Amino acid sequence: MIRNVQGNYWKCKEWLLKEPSQLSQKAKSIYLHKLGEMKCENGFLNQQISSLFAAHIVTSGQGYFKSNERTYDVKTGDIFFFFPNKFYQYGMGKSPHWNFTWLNMIGPELINILTNFKIDYQNPIIYGANMELINPILKKCQMSLGYTIPLQSSPIQLAWSFIEYLEKNHSTSIDQLDIAEQTKWLIDNDSHNFLTVQGLAEQLEYTRASIFRLFKDKYNISPKDYMDKIRIEKASAMLVSTKCSIKEISSSLGFTNPNYFARAFRKYTMINPMEFRKKHLQL
């Protein structure tokens, strides 16, 4: 199905998969779920909690993208990424127009694959993509999606064509990072939430004191405090997007002491977890 939507400051066209139900049996693969084009004019501003992963390729103009309390200027050739259950804000820059195409992809291995390219919630942007290589991929996606357009390629092939572009042009090995950067990368990508500073030191084969000093010198925060900050961000998203109890959330994020979790949460949000949930559910 092709859907056209228009607002005061934007026009949108979406291509939806013709038969998404056929793909549910291939849950172990990565596949393209939706593609869309957004044409924005002066005054455009949007904010949302994304339910799916999305890659946004800026095709013309300039805008900005705000994620994890950081603001990024994005222009033609830049790619910015949404990760599930995270809050984002994006809007117009100084140019009179801003156009981008987005790809919604689904698959349980998607996030793990992207971390190999150093793309994650803490690093959600690629600057200066090669549009001569990207545009044929987008064109192929447009030709292959839609209710009235016969599939030219499978949704799995389409998703992997984009992944392969990233692999060939934007891949970064963790071995290329210094010790502080490797420490940050491991914390950012700790999907099980049970990493400790001692565990980091053992994994990187450095002393705990060295890890602390190198990380603090580079990022002006200790590894433990940074670890808490990342987990509190995850807790904030879970408080709004799930019905899990506060105890269940804190435990799932590696906090064994509920009182410590409450203190850490207040340190970074200025309110306790219960107040945070009530405040955001009322919005």
Rank of each mutant, 00 (worst) to 15 (best):
I2K: 08
R3N: 09
V5F: 11
Q6E: 03
W10Y: 03
K11Y: 07
C12N: 01
C12Q: 03
K18T: 15
Q25N: 10
K26C: 00
A27V: 11
K28C: 15
I30D: 14
E37I: 12
L45M: 07
Q48S: 13
V58Y: 01
Q62Y: 04
Q62M: 05
G63M: 04
Y64K: 00
T71Q: 00
Y72T: 02
F81H: 10
F82H: 07
P84V: 04
P84S: 08
Y88S: 03
Y90C: 03
G91A: 06
W98V: 05
N99W: 04
I106F: 11
G107T: 06
I111P: 13
N112Q: 11
N116I: 12
K118W: 06
K118S: 10
D120Y: 06
Y121I: 10
Y127P: 07
K140Q: 13
C141E: 02
C141L: 12
C141M: 10
L151R: 11
S154H: 12
P155R: 10
A159K: 13
F162T: 02
F162E: 00
I163E: 13
E164I: 13
N169H: 02
L177I: 01
Q182M: 05
S191F: 12
H192D: 09
L195I: 02
G199Y: 01
L200D: 12
L204Q: 07
R213P: 10
Y226Q: 04
K229F: 02
I230S: 00
I230N: 01
I230A: 03
K234P: 03
L239G: 06
S252C: 12
G254Q: 08
T256Q: 08
P258I: 13
F261H: 00
A262F: 11
K267W: 15
Y268N: 07
T269M: 11
T269K: 15
N272W: 15
K278I: 14
K279R: 14
